[in-house]
Amino acid sequence: MSLIEPIEPAAALEVRNLVTELRLRRGTLRPVDGVSFSVAKGQTLGIVGESGSGKSMTCLSLLRLLPRPGGRIAGGEVVVAGTDLTKLSDRELARDWRGRRISMVTQDPMSSLNPVYTIGDQVGAPLRYHRIARTRSDARARAAEALGKVRIPSPEARLHDYPHQFSGGMRQRVVSAMAIACAPEVMIADEPTSSLDVTIQVKMMDLYRQIQEETGVAIVLITHDMGVAASICDRIAVMYAGRIVEQGPAKELFRNPAHPYTQSLLSAIPKLGEKRKRLYALGGQPPSLTAMPKGCRFAPRCALADAKCHASYPGETNLGAGHRTNCWRVAEGGAPHAA
């Protein structure tokens, strides 16, 4: 709460200290362990991380779509428009929030669409369910409007088509139309473009930008691709082993990555225009959920780790302008450079 912190625009989604547990026979795992972030209205937050980092589990927790039995939110708050979603009953969440004020787009557009219903029925379904459209014809009109928003040519004519009559990129547009049909405040997109070719991907990212400008929706984008994150995110949070290790404005994070993990991720990817440089290869693998290191979770792979890093988890260091990281080296005032 320092005074020099710039006033951030009102948060559409605020997550505080979220903890998700999975109870299995062999014990309880914590795939998400104390995650906090916020997304402002009309902004995009990218959550980047490798498989198993907990980024997808974080998203599922926001909508309480955890695996059953065993998955549960063990702590923290998920606040949308002043309401803590973790306090709501399952019924309230499903009736008033999920798909209505906070919606989701997943990676595989084909499995998100039911092959036996027309596109009009499927885009109209959330509108009917949430009582935004009272009649069938109203639902159709609004569905066509949503399809128009995602730039599908002649939307009225395509309402009667089935998913298989659309190409891969067009299907992902239909799924996005479903997600924005109810004019949600927050849209969660889990790897929405990673099954698409680059020439299609670039158009999808442009589309998300346009939708955001028109509707002011806040987007949480889950991705493993630093390039995708860089091209459309305003802010970026880097997850590692169930925790956010660094977050900040995209430009700042890419220009001055503070955490050794972020630094090594950025130097591990080949970049266009850089020919034949040996890549920085981070050794080892992320820790398993069943055997989390006691101290900093990145310490076993970190070139700069010392006794303190192995002993206890570092607190958050504020680097200004909303750029924060959890690293002992940064906390002690050093500028770490692992890569």
Binding site: V198, T199, V202, K203, V228, A250, K271
Partner: peptide, 25 residues
């Protein structure tokens, strides 16, 4: 040219063009 221009780059200053290619494969 279109492929190269469409490739996302880990550089927040790079602006992806949208007019280098039409439709899908």
């Amino acid at each position: 040219q279109a492929l190269l221009a469409s490739a996302p780059r880990p550089d927040p200053d790079h602006v992806l063009p949208t007019d280098v290619i039409i439709g899908e494969i």
